[in-house]
């Protein structure tokens, strides 16, 4: 099972890379959905021998919410405000790809310094979660469109989710659900904001929000 767990974790990171490399909003959202679904299977692989209802609920909710609902919602936003379907990068694709390569390496180095109090199922989990968080950040920093901002937040959440899986047995279900709800509401608010930006400015390029400063 551990070999499969490793593979899945690598796949999660690779999907993050794909998100950074792709230049279509639709593709980014789809890949995000896929990443969430793949993440949803990880709890089963991690706690293969001792599956509890608690674990099943968390993973199913995460899968449905982030894998299907959120992408659907984001697609609706794109259709509704008729955003141009291309990512507008502030930093070029090549540079961000290279940067994410360094970030992956960095997260491996970081996690080798981090001593985790419990035994970990695979030594890839922490690096994978770090690199997913960092790639989410990278998406936030380097892309201009509001939709990519939302996706960036969601990818970061995916990374946090992955880290939280390590503590799944220790944290109550309620906390998990609370986080997921927070994210969902956050995304909803962002969606509404996106809508309003497009109503007022006729585009959703967040770089134009700089005119709002003092």
């Amino acid at each position: 099972m551990e070999a499969w767990l490793d593979m899945t974790l690598v796949l999660v990171v690779l999907l993050g890379l794909f998100m950074i490399g792709s230049n279509r909003l639709g593709a980014i959202i789809q890949i995000f959905g896929l990443q969430s679904v793949v993440l949803g299977t990880i709890p089963f692989l991690m706690y293969f021998s001792k599956i509890e209802i608690h674990i099943v609920i968390v993973s199913l909710v995460a899968m449905v919410l982030k894998g299907f609902l959120m992408p659907y919602f984001l697609f609706w936003a794109i259709r509704h405000v008729s955003i141009r379907r291309e990512v507008s990068p502030l930093i070029g694709f090549g540079s961000t790809l290279f940067l994410s390569g360094f970030l992956i390496a960095g997260s491996f180095i970081l996690s080798s310094r981090l001593i985790f109090p419990y035994p970990v199922m695979s030594d890839f989990i922490i690096p994978a979660s770090f690199s997913t968080i960092m790639m989410g950040f990278l998406l936030l920093i380097s892309r201009a469109k509001a939709i990519t901002q939302v996706v960036g937040y969601l990818v970061m959440e995916n990374g946090i989710f992955l880290f939280a899986l390590l503590l799944l047995e220790k944290t109550p279900l309620l906390v998990e659900m609370g986080i997921l709800l927070d994210v969902f509401v956050g995304a909803l608010v962002m969606g509404i904001v996106v809508n309003h930006i497009s109503d007022h400015f006729e585009h959703t390029d967040t770089s134009h929000l700089t005119v709002l400063r003092d």
């Binding site: 690598v10 690779l14 230049n23 090549g94 790809l97 290279f98 994410s100 390569g101 992956i104 390496a105």
Partner: peptide
């Protein structure tokens, strides 16, 4: 976009 395709090959190798 072909360079990005190849850069991703590089990054896979680095990974």
């Amino acid at each position: 976009r072909v360079p990005y395709f190849l850069i991703s090959a590089v990054i896979f190798a680095v990974f």
